[in-house]
Design a protein around this nucleic acid. Structure first.
Lengths: 168, 168
DNA sequence: CCTCTAAGTTGGATTAACCAACTCAGCCCG
DNA sequence: CGGGCTGAGTTGGTTAATCCAACTTAGAGG
């Protein structure tokens, strides 16, 4: 299950945790309020062994936290709750939702709507600058930070013009 | 490969296309400028058969577009380019990057930095309202839209106190 | 015709997902 | 005490996906 060494690309590192089948759907259900094994199992229709495995991975990665709970007249069982790290995945899910709604419509309209809690005004995912301006995606560029610059196989292909190229 | 019917949840529909291993990494490389089979192959170190499959899936889903190109002194070959739908995945990748940087740091600093093209000012992914205000994630709530409301097992189970029903 | 290269295919081994049946621990009931 | 009930998993066997190395293919140049 473990990678030899964690990759330098943040997307790849995120996908190490989130990239397996069912994982993001488990997180989505957690955002909808699911906490128990049986809730995840029935809403997702996922096999128990896979669910066990994914919950363990997520707990391990600090996305979910295992807690004991007890309903009266029942023994202690465990439940799963989003941690700070898990809650921080909301933009990831929202971005996926937004893309799915826009480019893979279901014909039933959006299944989830994000809105401001106080005003109920709809919100969307966007790029913003530190001073709070909204920047359109086409006005955003990506440059390689320090992590990708030293010895990554990725760079070898670009080596003889890589730095000029990066400003493209 | 395909599901019987596409799910109503947008996250699940997005993951139908993007959720397989390597897929999002292929898209990431496309954003870095990769267009040829061999570029994807060498930067990602992915097996050719898998790459063939993923490129086909992405072309099929309209995320990439296949184009012919010809270097002089070589025969025609095909290259892969982001479509509008593919370009719209930038927020998804940015959200994953942001989460990875924050919660799974590599020790090498961020590998990619998103910034405004004109000003080079750093940008981040955030929720914004229609009138351009930035809304903090904790002030955002999600409500089920129309798609989940009709006949989804999830809702029918939770409505009209079915919890007692289900637990007996 | 021979060789070179980018872009794939193909076959076989390994790993992951799937599914159904089963276990396990504690609580309640009699 | 023993037996049934329930949520939370395990276990075993089958199917599907991934990985890896070797091979094929189509056209250009020599």
């Amino acid at each position: 299950m473990s990678t030899a060494q964690s990759p330098r690309c943040s997307v790849a590192r995120s996908l190490e945790v989130l990239g397996e089948k069912w994982t993001l759907l488990v997180v989505r259900e957690a955002f909808w309020g699911a906490t128990r094994f049986s809730e995840f199992k029935s809403t997702l229709s996922v096999a128990s062994d896979i669910l066990t495995n994914r919950l363990a991975t997520l707990v391990d990665a600090g996305v979910l936290e295992r807690r004991a709970y007890r309903e009266d007249g029942a023994r202690e069982r465990s439940s799963y709750h989003l941690t700070e790290s898990g809650l921080a995945l909301r933009p990831v899910l929202a971005a996926l939702t937004q893309w799915g709604d826009a480019f893979r419509p279901s014909g039933f309209g959006p299944a989830a709507v994000y809105r401001e809690r106080e005003s109920a005004a709809p919100v969307r995912i966007a790029f913003v600058s530190d001073d709070g301006r909204v920047i359109e995606p086409l006005d955003v560029e990506v440059v390689r930070g320090g992590a990708a610059l030293e010895g990554a196989p990725l760079e070898s292909a670009l080596r003889d013009g890589a730095l000029a190229n990066a400003s493209e």
